[in-house]
Design a binder for these strands. Structure first.
Lengths: 354, 354
DNA sequence: CTGTTAGCGCTTTCAT
DNA sequence: ATGAAAGCGCTAACAG
């Protein structure tokens, strides 16, 4: 009996199919051609059915789907990529060990799973050359989209590579502050920094200092200085300590800074990791928080809640950011920018300090 | 002038090449065939050169490499995968938001970069069905290896899928405790738990309790109970509180447990996340740590050092684990198991409690 | 609505 | 040592 000729006889079809199944699955992986053969149709019909099923009769559709299912067919992503089909979404991160990035990546993955697309996280380090070659390699896998989490402004080289990807038909979404020319997800730091600034100045403190790092945090520092200015504090008089994205460094820098000049009663660190480093140093130096110096951070990472005292900060919804990024990556005509609100969280590091 | 006929004339070759370069790179990505054409050799020779270069004359090798470089050739991973070549390494994680997993994944990626292989992290959730289909999809990309970080013992279904991957020529390495039948990286929890147990009992405490979760932490609990037994404490009398991998739950469970029975002066939580939840609850209840109850955890995540008091724990070298996993993934004949030592870290949550 | 056919870019026998 | 040629598994014209 030719395979696929008997299709409408219930049990016997089932049995016949089982024989075919055994014959096929014995050795190599099941291919689309196998499905086609067993279903008694052409590979094009099979392909059509498996990709949305436009222009296929219902009966064939059903038969093909049944066979594919029975054979345990899994489409070959390499072949599809080679043929130009775009499925996967790659998320590029500098380093997944930080909470905000990990939270965003996890959220992207969850959203992707819900949409049935394969999401994968690729760490690309902080070195531009390495990044470019990573992106070049990934391009050849023809992903549907590349989400760049936390670009720093090396958009010169990396951006060109991403643009080439877009020119080929790929989608790019960037996350974070710097404008990249690609659809972007960011948090409304302007508003929240100001909110935080007003809370801090509302404590009655008038001698603020800022701890920040070189990178993508600059805008928070500037927003805070602007807020200070609005409240009569000359930004030029505000000490700004710049460190290298690391709580230990923040700690050491704070120690040096406080020792050199005790002229501050308030420290804003542009992210929580830095703020915790600051608190660490102050505590060790016997400076009371918030009585002597109030401290605030930004991001609301889990440690901030558990710190002693709790760290006042701006809570960002990283999960929402991840979902937004995936949605934009899947959208053929996404908004240029999705800006998410933040939320002021007041804890012991500033509370009751008035 | 036929392309590639002039090879040893320095400047003129360079110019000629540049012309070709412009012609080629104008539009679509550069293919191996482009390189072959410009270099004036066959695609097979080009392929040979680009893959180790066996059986190719030195002069051709040089020429091909120069052309590939000049054209900015990037090999197409999809095509290579389709052809059966294995390059990438996928790391499967349940959830990259936990420190141990993130640290391992980052370390795998760093090691991979050093080896020139593309490493990518794929979150596969905790649902077996989803995991299986993820693995099936990834198999079609013909990765060189799949590293499974923190398998829970659902090796039944997932293991079969991984085995199929191995049968096709792939490599599998698992990380974590449960024996999987694949080469495995783990930490020597047996030894360190005993070390920790002796430290704890050395404080003079005799009424221990254990907080743990359902999953892959069972062996730590058992090792600790065995240690207790060796020191004259009947394991059957040791309360074991089981929670759901979450510090909040650990916190609530602890509150209930302590309220219901104040018959413990020592708590071992089988990981730090749980231990921090325990400490949180105790602190809120006004129980002094370590005076009333000493607390210890396992893993040494960053929060543990910064907690108040610092958490006594077993420090695991997750970066080393990641490196070991990658080395085993790349090794054609890897050891069945790589077991890493841990280190006892005594902090305020037990120190000076005697 | 369905089938035939021509590759996508690469590796790898098999000749030479 | 080199090249010609046959596909890997799939999709998308193009015919019917």
């Amino acid at each position: 009996m030719a395979p696929g000729t008997v299709v409408h006889e219930g049990e016997s079809v089932r049995l016949e199919l089982r024989k075919e199944v055994l014959a096929v699955t014995a050795s190599r992986p099941v291919t689309l051609a196998d499905v086609a053969r067993v279903a008694g149709v052409s590979t094009s019909t099979t392909s059509r059915v498996l990709n949305g099923g436009a222009n296929v009769s219902a009966s064939l559709r059903l038969r093909v789907l049944a066979v594919a299912d029975a054979l345990g067919y899994v489409s070959n992503m390499a072949a599809q990529a080679l043929r130009g089909r775009r499925r996967a979404v790659f998320t590029l991160v500098p380093d997944a060990r930080t909470f905000p990035i990990a939270a965003q990546a996890a959220s992207i993955e969850e959203a992707a799973r819900a949409e049935g697309v394969l999401a994968s996280v690729v760490m690309i380090g902080r070195d531009t050359t390495a990044r470019v070659s990573r992106i070049q390699a990934l391009r050849t896998l023809k992903p549907h989209a590349i989400i760049v989490s936390y670009t720093e402004p090396e958009v010169a080289t990396v951006g060109a590579e991403l643009q080439r990807f877009v020119d080929e038909g790929g989608h790019v979404v960037t996350m974070g502050e710097p404008k990249t020319g690609f659809p972007r997800v960011c948090h409304d730091d302007q508003t929240t920094v100001r909110l935080l600034g007003e809370h801090l100045l509302g404590l009655g403190r008038r001698r603020p200092a800022i701890v920040t790092d070189h990178g993508a945090l600059r805008h928070r520092q500037e927003a805070m200085l602007a807020c200070f200015a609005d409240h009569g504090i000359d930004p030029a008089t505000v000490p700004v300590v710049t460190v290298e994205r690391d709580s230990i460094q923040a700690s050491q820098a704070t120690r040096r800074f406080i020792t050199a000049s005790d002229s501050c009663d308030l420290i804003y660190a542009t992210n929580d990791v830095l703020a915790l480093g600051v608190m660490d140093a102050l505590t060790e130096m016997g400076v009371r928080i918030p009585e002597d110096i109030a401290v605030a951070g930004h991001d609301d990472i889990p440690l901030s809640r558990d710190a002693t005292p709790g760290l006042t900060t701006v809570a960002l919804d990283f999960a929402a950011a991840g979902r937004a990024a995936l949605a934009m990556a899947l959208d053929d005509d996404p908004p240029a920018i999705t800006c998410l609100a933040g939320r002021l969280v007041i804890r012991g590091s500033t509370a009751g300090a008035g």
